[in-house]
Amino acid sequence: MIAPKKISLRWMVFADTALSYWRIGWKQSWIYRRNTLLSLIGAILALALQLAVWAFLTKDGSLGGYSKHSSTAYFTMMYLLGIVLSPGCDIWLSRRIINGDIVLDMLKPQNPLFFVPFEQLSANLHRLLIGGLPVMAGLALLYGFSLSPSRILAVMPVMTLSYVFWVAMEFCLGSACFRTNAYWGVASLKSLLLMLLTGRLLPLEFYPNWLAASLDKNPFAIAYYHVARGALGLDSGRTLLSVTFWQLLFAAAACWLAMIFWNTGLRKLHTQGG
C-alpha cells in the first residue's frame, strides 16, 4: 500500500503566513476605504483628461494606428495596470529602514521579502475591485470595446510575472535606502522609468523606430504596453508567448538582484547597526 504524500510542514507554514499577510492588506484597505476612494477619484480625473486629449487627437481618424476607440481601450487598460502594478514594496522597505523598524522584521522567523508582496497584492486587488473594474466596465459600455475572457487568461501568465518583476525591482530600489538612508532620489528614478519605458503616457508606436525597436522587449514595456495590447487583442499569440518568456527571464534576474541587495543591506545593518 502506498502511503499518501504528506504536504511539507514548511510549505504549510509559508501558505499560512502568506494568507495572514493577505488578510492584513485586505483589512487595511477596507478600514481606510475613504482613502482608497479618494485616490481612485484622483486617478479617474487623470484618466478622464488622458482620454479627452486622445479623443481630440484622434477625432479626424487614426493616429499612429490608434483610433478613438482603441486609444480609449489602451489607456483604460493602462489605468487598470497602474492600479495592479503598484505594490509599493519600496515605500514599505524604505520607511522600515529609515525608522529603524527593519530590525524588528529580522526577529521574525520568516523573510519579509516573501510575504510583504501578499499584503500589497491584496490591497491592489481591493482597489481594482472597488474602482478599477467598474470604471473599465463603464467605459467599455460607453465606447463599445470588449475584453474576452480568453484574452485575459492569455495575458495572466505575463501579468503575474510582471508583478513578480515589479515587486523584485521595488525591493532593489528600496534596498538602496540601506546605503543612502533617504529614499526620494531613488523614488524619482522609478517614476522616470515608468514614464519612459512603459508606454503609459505615449504608446511605443509614437517613438522613433530605432527607439521603439530597442525598448520593445524591456521588462517595463512588457508589463504595461504588451499586457495592454495582449488583453485588447492587438498583439498576436506568438508575440505574447515571446514576451512571457522574456518576462520570466527578467523576473528571475530581478529576484536574484533583490536577494543580493537585501542581503548586502542586512550585512551592513549587522555590522553598523540600525
Binding site: 481606510y32 482613502n35 479618494l38 486617478a43 487623470a46 486629449v53 503616457l201
Partner: peptide, 21 residues
C-alpha cells in the same frame, strides 16, 4: 482631505499626474 480619510495616503500626489494635462 486626509483629515477626513484619516490616512497618510496622499491624494495630493494627484498633482503630479494631472500636471501633464
Amino acid at each position: 482631505l486626509s483629515l477626513w480619510s484619516q490616512t497618510q495616503g496622499n491624494l495630493g500626489l494627484v498633482v503630479m499626474d494631472i500636471r501633464v494635462f
